[in-house]
Write a protein that binds this DNA or RNA. Structure first.
Lengths: 347, 347
DNA sequence: TTTTCGATTTGGATCGTTCTAAATTCTGGG
DNA sequence: CCCAGAATTTAGAACGATCCAAATCGAAAA
């Protein structure tokens, strides 16, 4: 009459044991039912399931993970979730893993390597099966390299860390900017500005190199005064273009690091009475949803976020299954999208 | 010589036991050290910590949680993370909990109640201490009510579910729209459109009611043809305004459900040769970062996301500590922001 | 040299599952 | 009615931490 001394405990959590007692079977059988094992008899299964429903049983995944050492859980660290390109990518990667039956935990690093490290170690402590990382600016190479040694399945997404020895799902940034730059050169532009991007990320380095090398390949000089560095934001784009237009020999076109900057550039042009797509050519990068809605609609480079997310998910699962396979890279190709913000040089 | 028969296992995970053996103390002592207990002698602590570093020990939080029944983990379900207002709110809520020493797991429901339910039950299975939910459109009242009965600490954020019996951190939407509407009436407008919002969310209902009731309070008739319903997007804003301008007695101003729609409206106006802020008054809601960068800069209503995130975090922790306290609500106040997109009626 | 008492350390049970090996129950054929 | 072999079910030891009560240690007091 006093078999369960813990009855007094405030909000007693229901366990497998209670469920087993209620259904009149052993814990092992209940476990089998919950794991959808074909071993258990149909009648028993139904009875257990009915008890679970009746009692409002909640499975304790933590306890199960402790035993199985597999959590079916993936951690995703995003450098900066309020950047719309990464917001979209985040949505894609979550969708991809959900489709594959994994649980996804997302964290925003806010471009802070310390926050990112914090999240990574939390996920390790929770025994996550793997990690997808869009590294924050200034991420330490060693800390990434350590991941590999520590034997944690991990893939980098969108931003590469050279020498990390990790798998990578990204985009051909160099080629994308190349397409834009060549297109502008073909239109007759000779003074082409490159606005935004920093060398702290592979994306910045690749796009900026793409610009420089395409100019060179076409016999155009690199004018340092036309290259402006900076973290992307609308206001940095607006400020930059206003400054560039005050030069003695101002540019007639701008290749922007991304769409957000390009929007800023278009706003800045208007503020000084110049019409983008008529007086000045503007190209963005990313093809955000709003790009085609602007007037003029923004010419830009399309990135296939869906492909990147899917590739990252696939790479990670392969890595989990086979920790010692050689490092893999999947690079999605850019798509030049010509809309109305480009034009031949004015005058 | 064969004390650890499991030496063969592939990538053996290091445990407290290994650490204890290495440092020459008991498991209990190691546990004390890791929990930063003041009970353990300084010398012992140093030795254990050194062993941990040397061996590359990783704490197993899952195992600990099993014993302690507290995870210090919070789940955050966001209705739609690619909506910039919610992206910002997500960043705020994560920051708030991180500051309070909690681990935060974020999930994007994509406005799909099923995805949201899925996440909630995963978090329950992981024994999360609490939940913050921005409910997806069409969230079932019963499922929210059940949360309360199930004794899970939970607060709603930004979107309320009447009758759920859950705590709520939100914004005075009715009053915000009221401020806008009254401002426009004061400017002399009589034909004021309301664009966007659906009755599926409390936000939609509150803002739409605010518009209707403010018109009534000022003795203006409600013209049904001036009210357009719809899920927010730039294109819906652009389409709506073009349609409204073709009416026999077109509006001279628009109160938009949010900034995104207002941007669409401004784009639509330009497409038909009308200049926002001169020929037509446009007001948004949310005060997204880009609102002040548009030309004309968008007049709008500021929402204090930081306050909402902080309030939600505080409410949740209070609820966790005291599950039976009466339900609480925290409503942040709107701030009318007058910029350049408003104007008196043209003509 | 004992005693005593605070400061440290520890053994062993426990949290809620899974898993292995073995026990039990069914079946149909002889 | 018995029995082999398949179909089900189960006991009990993990998994890796925490926590309680009790043991041990040290230094000061007697």
């Amino acid at each position: 009459m006093n078999e369960r001394p813990k009855l007094l405990r405030a909000r007693e959590r229901l366990t497998l044991r209670d469920l087993a007692a209620h259904a009149g079977v052993s814990r092992a059988t209940v476990s089998l039912v919950l794991a959808k094992s074909p071993l258990v008899a149909e009648k028993t299964r139904a009875r257990v399931l009915e008890s679970a429903r009746l009692l409002g049983y909640v499975y304790n995944r933590g306890a199960a993970n402790l035993r199985t050492r597999r959590t079916h859980t993936i951690g995703v660290a995003i450098n900066e979730i309020t950047n719309p390109y990464f917001t979209g990518l985040t949505a894609e990667i979550q969708r991809a893993f959900l489709d594959l039956g994994r649980t996804v935990f997302i964290s925003n690093s806010d471009e802070d390597p310390a926050r990112q490290e914090q999240f990574i170690s939390t996920m390790r402590e929770y025994n996550a099966d793997g990690l997808v990382i869009c590294p924050a600016q200034g991420t330490d190479l060693d800390s990434m390299r350590r991941l590999r040694e520590q034997g944690i399945a991990c893939v980098l997404m969108s931003r590469d860390i050279a020498g990390s020895g990790l798998d990578y799902a990204g985009h051909a940034n160099h080629r994308g900017i190349s397409l834009v730059t060549e297109h502008l050169i073909g239109l007759g532009h000779r003074r082409i500005a490159m606005i935004g991007g920093v060398d702290l990320t592979s994306t910045g380095r690749e796009r900026r190199a793409g610009y420089r090398e395409t100019l060179a390949a076409n016999g155009l000089p690199l004018a340092p005064e036309l290259v402006v560095t900076g973290t992307p934001s609308r206001s940095m784009g607006a400020d930059a273009i206003k400054r560039l237009l005050r030069l003695d020999d101002p540019p007639t076109a701008a290749v922007c690091f991304n769409d957000v900057i390009a929007f800023g550039v278009m706003l800045g042009l208007r503020q000084v009475g110049r019409e983008p797509g008529r007086d000045f050519a503007v190209f963005g990068y990313d093809d955000l949803a709003e790009a085609e809605l602007w007037t003029p609609a923004l010419s830009t480079v399309g990135i296939d976020s869906h492909a990147i997310g899917t590739a990252a998910a696939r790479l990670l699962l392969e890595r989990i299954d086979n920790p010692d396979a050689p490092v893999k890279r999947e690079i999605s190709q850019p798509r030049l999208i010509i809309r109305a913000s480009g034009c031949p040089p004015a005058r």
